[in-house]
Lab assay of single mutants.
Amino acid sequence: NQASVVANQLIPINVALTLVMMRSEVVTPVGIPAEDIPRLVSMQVNRAVPLGTTLMPDMVKGYA
């Protein structure tokens, strides 16, 4: 099963993503693939993302 990107903490809106904010985990439904974590660094989410939430492509500005 493919690992997805999961919030490692509350990720506020309009804050640049850092490695420490994200972890990889096998979850259902599948979200952004874990291998895209380096690409996500410095991008921003378009809504607050609670701890443990799977990041979906539509949550990250400029990802999709």
Score class of each variant (00 low, 15 high):
residue 1 N to D: 15
residue 1 N to H: 13
residue 1 N to K: 06
residue 1 N to A: 14
residue 1 N to V: 15
residue 1 N to T: 15
residue 1 N to F: 12
residue 1 N to Q: 15
residue 1 N to S: 15
residue 1 N to M: 15
residue 1 N to L: 15
residue 2 Q to G: 15
residue 2 Q to I: 13
residue 2 Q to N: 12
residue 2 Q to T: 14
residue 2 Q to D: 15
residue 2 Q to R: 05
residue 2 Q to H: 12
residue 2 Q to A: 09
residue 2 Q to C: 15
residue 2 Q to E: 15
residue 2 Q to F: 13
residue 2 Q to L: 13
residue 3 A to I: 06
residue 3 A to Y: 12
residue 3 A to M: 14
residue 3 A to T: 09
residue 3 A to K: 07
residue 3 A to F: 07
residue 3 A to S: 14
residue 4 S to I: 02
residue 4 S to Y: 03
residue 4 S to F: 02
residue 4 S to A: 03
residue 4 S to T: 04
residue 4 S to C: 06
residue 4 S to D: 01
residue 5 V to P: 01
residue 5 V to G: 02
residue 5 V to I: 12
residue 5 V to K: 01
residue 5 V to C: 06
residue 6 V to Q: 03
residue 6 V to H: 00
residue 6 V to T: 06
residue 6 V to P: 01
residue 6 V to K: 03
residue 7 A to R: 01
residue 7 A to D: 01
residue 7 A to T: 09
residue 7 A to V: 07
residue 7 A to M: 04
residue 7 A to W: 03
residue 7 A to L: 03
residue 7 A to F: 02
residue 7 A to K: 02
residue 8 N to K: 07
residue 8 N to R: 08
residue 9 Q to G: 05
residue 9 Q to I: 09
residue 9 Q to H: 09
residue 9 Q to P: 00
residue 9 Q to Y: 08
residue 9 Q to F: 06
residue 9 Q to S: 10
residue 10 L to H: 15
residue 10 L to S: 13
residue 10 L to T: 11
residue 10 L to A: 12
residue 11 I to A: 01
residue 11 I to T: 00
residue 11 I to C: 03
residue 11 I to G: 01
residue 12 P to W: 04
residue 12 P to E: 12
residue 12 P to Q: 10
residue 12 P to C: 06
residue 12 P to V: 04
residue 12 P to A: 13
residue 13 I to M: 13
residue 13 I to Y: 15
residue 13 I to K: 12
residue 13 I to A: 10
residue 13 I to P: 14
residue 14 N to H: 13
residue 14 N to L: 07
residue 14 N to S: 09
residue 15 V to S: 13
residue 15 V to N: 08
residue 15 V to R: 11
residue 15 V to Y: 14
residue 15 V to E: 15
residue 16 A to Q: 14
residue 16 A to M: 15
residue 16 A to T: 09
residue 16 A to L: 09
residue 16 A to E: 14
residue 16 A to V: 11
residue 16 A to N: 13
residue 17 L to D: 02
residue 17 L to N: 00
residue 17 L to I: 11
residue 17 L to K: 00
residue 17 L to G: 01
residue 17 L to V: 04
residue 18 T to F: 03
residue 18 T to V: 05
residue 18 T to Q: 13
residue 18 T to E: 13
residue 18 T to N: 06
residue 18 T to K: 06
residue 18 T to I: 07
residue 19 L to R: 11
residue 19 L to S: 12
residue 19 L to H: 08
residue 19 L to G: 07
residue 19 L to E: 14
residue 19 L to K: 12
residue 19 L to Y: 10
residue 19 L to I: 12
residue 19 L to T: 09
residue 20 V to P: 15
residue 20 V to L: 11
residue 20 V to E: 13
residue 21 M to L: 04
residue 21 M to W: 03
residue 21 M to F: 04
residue 21 M to E: 02
residue 21 M to P: 00
residue 22 M to H: 00
residue 22 M to T: 00
residue 22 M to V: 07
residue 22 M to A: 01
residue 22 M to R: 00
residue 22 M to Y: 02
residue 22 M to F: 09
residue 23 R to T: 10
residue 23 R to A: 10
residue 23 R to K: 13
residue 23 R to V: 05
residue 23 R to C: 05
residue 23 R to Y: 07
residue 23 R to M: 05
residue 23 R to Q: 05
residue 23 R to D: 05
residue 23 R to S: 10
residue 23 R to L: 05
residue 23 R to H: 05
residue 24 S to A: 14
residue 24 S to I: 07
residue 24 S to P: 11
residue 24 S to Y: 07
residue 24 S to Q: 12
residue 24 S to V: 10
residue 24 S to M: 14
residue 24 S to D: 08
residue 24 S to T: 14
residue 24 S to K: 11
residue 25 E to R: 05
residue 25 E to F: 05
residue 25 E to I: 05
residue 25 E to P: 00
residue 25 E to A: 13
residue 25 E to N: 07
residue 26 V to F: 07
residue 26 V to N: 15
residue 26 V to E: 15
residue 26 V to Y: 13
residue 27 V to W: 03
residue 27 V to D: 01
residue 27 V to G: 03
residue 28 T to R: 04
residue 28 T to G: 08
residue 28 T to L: 07
residue 28 T to P: 01
residue 28 T to N: 12
residue 28 T to Q: 08
residue 28 T to F: 10
residue 29 P to G: 04
residue 29 P to F: 03
residue 29 P to Y: 03
residue 29 P to M: 04
residue 29 P to A: 04
residue 29 P to V: 07
residue 29 P to D: 07
residue 30 V to I: 13
residue 30 V to Q: 14
residue 30 V to F: 11
residue 30 V to W: 08
residue 30 V to M: 14
residue 30 V to T: 14
residue 31 G to A: 03
residue 31 G to V: 02
residue 31 G to F: 03
residue 31 G to P: 00
residue 31 G to L: 02
residue 31 G to T: 02
residue 32 I to P: 00
residue 32 I to H: 01
residue 32 I to A: 01
residue 32 I to C: 04
residue 32 I to R: 00
residue 32 I to N: 01
residue 33 P to V: 11
residue 33 P to K: 08
residue 33 P to Y: 09
residue 34 A to Q: 06
residue 34 A to W: 05
residue 34 A to S: 12
residue 34 A to I: 06
residue 34 A to R: 05
residue 34 A to M: 07
residue 34 A to G: 08
residue 34 A to H: 14
residue 34 A to P: 06
residue 34 A to K: 06
residue 35 E to S: 11
residue 35 E to L: 09
residue 35 E to F: 08
residue 35 E to G: 10
residue 35 E to A: 10
residue 36 D to N: 11
residue 36 D to I: 08
residue 36 D to P: 01
residue 36 D to G: 06
residue 36 D to K: 10
residue 37 I to F: 03
residue 37 I to M: 14
residue 37 I to N: 00
residue 37 I to G: 04
residue 37 I to S: 04
residue 37 I to V: 06
residue 37 I to A: 09
residue 38 P to Y: 09
residue 38 P to G: 11
residue 38 P to D: 09
residue 38 P to N: 13
residue 38 P to W: 07
residue 38 P to M: 09
residue 38 P to R: 08
residue 39 R to N: 14
residue 39 R to Q: 09
residue 39 R to L: 12
residue 40 L to N: 00
residue 40 L to H: 00
residue 40 L to E: 00
residue 40 L to F: 01
residue 40 L to R: 00
residue 40 L to A: 00
residue 41 V to A: 05
residue 41 V to H: 04
residue 41 V to T: 09
residue 41 V to C: 07
residue 42 S to E: 08
residue 42 S to D: 13
residue 42 S to L: 10
residue 42 S to A: 11
residue 42 S to F: 09
residue 42 S to Y: 06
residue 42 S to W: 09
residue 42 S to H: 12
residue 42 S to M: 10
residue 42 S to P: 00
residue 42 S to V: 03
residue 43 M to I: 04
residue 43 M to Y: 09
residue 43 M to G: 04
residue 43 M to R: 11
residue 43 M to W: 06
residue 43 M to K: 12
residue 43 M to L: 13
residue 43 M to Q: 09
residue 44 Q to P: 13
residue 44 Q to C: 11
residue 44 Q to Y: 14
residue 44 Q to R: 12
residue 44 Q to G: 05
residue 44 Q to S: 12
residue 45 V to T: 14
residue 45 V to G: 01
residue 45 V to D: 01
residue 45 V to Y: 03
residue 45 V to H: 00
residue 45 V to C: 06
residue 46 N to T: 12
residue 46 N to S: 11
residue 46 N to D: 10
residue 46 N to R: 12
residue 46 N to V: 14
residue 46 N to Y: 08
residue 47 R to L: 07
residue 47 R to A: 09
residue 47 R to K: 14
residue 47 R to M: 15
residue 48 A to M: 08
residue 48 A to C: 14
residue 48 A to W: 10
residue 48 A to R: 12
residue 48 A to N: 10
residue 48 A to Q: 12
residue 48 A to K: 10
residue 49 V to K: 02
residue 50 P to W: 04
residue 50 P to A: 08
residue 50 P to T: 11
residue 50 P to N: 09
residue 51 L to H: 11
residue 51 L to K: 11
residue 51 L to Q: 13
residue 51 L to R: 10
residue 51 L to D: 12
residue 51 L to I: 15
residue 52 G to L: 03
residue 52 G to C: 04
residue 52 G to W: 04
residue 52 G to A: 07
residue 52 G to T: 00
residue 52 G to H: 10
residue 52 G to I: 03
residue 53 T to K: 06
residue 53 T to C: 08
residue 53 T to D: 11
residue 53 T to G: 12
residue 53 T to E: 08
residue 53 T to P: 03
residue 53 T to S: 09
residue 53 T to W: 10
residue 54 T to I: 07
residue 54 T to N: 01
residue 54 T to A: 05
residue 55 L to F: 13
residue 55 L to Y: 01
residue 55 L to S: 01
residue 55 L to R: 00
residue 55 L to P: 01
residue 55 L to T: 00
residue 55 L to D: 01
residue 56 M to N: 05
residue 56 M to C: 05
residue 56 M to T: 13
residue 56 M to G: 05
residue 56 M to S: 06
residue 56 M to L: 12
residue 57 P to R: 07
residue 57 P to F: 05
residue 57 P to G: 07
residue 57 P to C: 07
residue 57 P to A: 08
residue 57 P to Q: 08
residue 57 P to W: 06
residue 57 P to S: 07
residue 57 P to H: 08
residue 58 D to I: 09
residue 58 D to E: 12
residue 58 D to N: 11
residue 58 D to H: 12
residue 58 D to F: 11
residue 58 D to G: 08
residue 58 D to M: 09
residue 59 M to D: 14
residue 59 M to W: 12
residue 59 M to Q: 05
residue 59 M to L: 06
residue 59 M to I: 05
residue 59 M to G: 03
residue 59 M to C: 05
residue 60 V to T: 02
residue 60 V to H: 02
residue 60 V to E: 02
residue 60 V to N: 02
residue 60 V to I: 14
residue 60 V to M: 06
residue 60 V to S: 02
residue 60 V to R: 00
residue 60 V to A: 01
residue 61 K to M: 12
residue 61 K to P: 15
residue 61 K to N: 13
residue 61 K to S: 14
residue 61 K to A: 12
residue 62 G to R: 05
residue 62 G to I: 04
residue 62 G to Y: 08
residue 62 G to S: 09
residue 62 G to F: 09
residue 63 Y to E: 04
residue 63 Y to S: 04
residue 63 Y to D: 03
residue 63 Y to I: 04
residue 63 Y to Q: 04
residue 63 Y to M: 06
residue 63 Y to R: 04
residue 63 Y to C: 04
residue 64 A to V: 15
residue 64 A to T: 14
residue 64 A to I: 14
residue 64 A to K: 15
residue 64 A to E: 10
residue 64 A to W: 04
residue 64 A to L: 12
residue 64 A to Y: 05
